[in-house]
């Protein structure tokens, strides 16, 4: 098996689907975050793979730049998301997203 672009893309698709599964199936708020992070990681893998296999070599490492910014934004998203989980837990005493049905506290 030679590592080609297709195989990287398939791995990344699998990772994305697993993330989607975690985000859709699990009812715990933290797992939804984990699923989103996984999907972002899959997208990062795609960026790097396309950058590495692109036939024309751009002077700037564009794919790498994209991934660096994505990681920074994903980290910010995780921090805010987890802070929200904690705030929600303080208020409703649960982190199950199915039980959070009221918009008003």
């Amino acid at each position: 098996m030679i590592a080609t672009l297709q195989i990287f893309l398939i791995i990344s698709a699998a990772l994305f689907s697993i993330g989607l599964l975690a985000a859709l199936s699990r009812r715990h708020a933290i797992f939804i975050l984990i699923g989103i992070e996984m999907m972002l990681a899959a997208a990062n893998l795609n960026f790097i793979a396309f950058w590495q296999f692109s036939p024309v070599r751009a002077p700037q490492p564009v794919g790498v730049m994209f991934v660096i910014f994505t990681i920074a934004i994903a980290a910010a998203e995780a921090a805010v998301g987890l802070a929200m989980v904690i705030a929600v837990y303080r208020h409703f005493r649960t982190t199950n997203v199915d039980q959070l049905t009221r918009l008003k506290g």
Binding site: L20, L21, A23, L24, S25, R27, N96, D98
Partner: peptide, 12 residues
């Protein structure tokens, strides 16, 4: 916590 099987179908 619950586990929704619909998510598995969508993911696959």
């Amino acid at each position: 916590h619950g586990f929704k099987w619909g998510g598995v179908v969508v993911a696959i």
